[in-house]
Amino acid sequence: MRITQGAFSFLPDLTDEQITKQVQYCIDNGWAVNIEYTDDPHPRNTYWEMWGHPMFDIADAAGIMMELNACRKAHGDLYIRLSAFDSTSGWESVKLSFIVNRPASEPGFRLRRQETEGRTIRYSTEGYSNDRPEGERYTR
């Protein structure tokens, strides 16, 4: 199962050249870019680990791509996403976010169905790999 989150989620994975163009678009718009990684890509897990600090005032996408490659080298077996933030409104708003790295195997999620009072049915999702401890969910 392929995890689909953020922009471009239903497209094939972007090449580094395409990622560089998206990063340069963010820079040209004055957005700060950050890199995050996780082994728990559940849609409600908004707290991914941050790689370094958000990158403000970078004029060239090459600097961000260098950091992305360093993150891939350290965490290439995890999900890595790139996010761009706009602070022109006085607060940080996510303008663009997309996955730039995936583990070799993506086990995905199961849908849990629970019948409750009356005819009410509740659904929840659970990752197939959540039974493994953090840091060991996508080991090769």
Rank of each mutant, 00 (worst) to 15 (best):
H75R: 10
D86H: 12
D39M: 09
A62G: 11
E115D: 14
S97F: 01
T46W: 13
A7D: 14
K21V: 02
D57S: 14
H53S: 09
K21F: 07
I19Q: 08
R110S: 05
A74S: 14
E92V: 00
D77L: 07
G118R: 05
R140S: 13
E117P: 00
R102N: 07
G127Q: 06
T46R: 15
I99T: 13
P41K: 09
N101Y: 04
K95D: 01
E17Q: 13
G52Y: 07
W91I: 05
Y123W: 11
I27E: 07
G30F: 10
Y138R: 01
R137F: 02
N34W: 06
R110Q: 05
Q22L: 07
A62I: 06
E136I: 00
I80M: 08
T116Y: 08
I99S: 06
S97V: 03
T120H: 13
L111K: 14
Q5E: 12
G90K: 12
S124V: 00
R110E: 08
G30S: 10
H42D: 11
Q24P: 02
Y25I: 00
T4W: 09
R102C: 01
G90C: 05
R2W: 08
D86Q: 11
R113A: 11
D86L: 10
E136G: 04
D57M: 09
I64L: 13
T20K: 15
Y37E: 02
K21H: 12
P103M: 06
D57I: 00
Y37V: 02
T38E: 04
F109W: 06
V100M: 05
S89M: 12
T125Y: 13
W48Q: 04
S124G: 07
D16W: 06
W31G: 02
G63I: 00
G118A: 05
I19F: 09
R122M: 03
Y123V: 00
R140N: 12
G127Y: 01
R119V: 00
A32T: 12
F10H: 15
Y47S: 13
A61W: 06
H42L: 04
W31S: 03
Q5K: 13
I64D: 05
W51E: 04
I3A: 09
F56T: 06
R113P: 00
Y128Q: 03
F109A: 06
E36K: 13
S87M: 13
P103I: 05
Q22F: 02
R2A: 08
E67G: 03
Q22R: 15
S97Y: 01
E117D: 14
Q24A: 08
E92Q: 12
Y123T: 01
E17W: 04
E126L: 11
E115I: 10
W48T: 03
M1S: 12
E117F: 14
E134L: 11
F8V: 01
H53L: 08
D86M: 11
F109M: 06
P133I: 05
D60K: 14
L78A: 03
N69I: 00
M65E: 11
W48Y: 09
T4Q: 14
G127E: 09
R132L: 14
T46K: 15
D60P: 00
I27F: 09
I80T: 10
N45S: 03
R2E: 09
E117V: 10
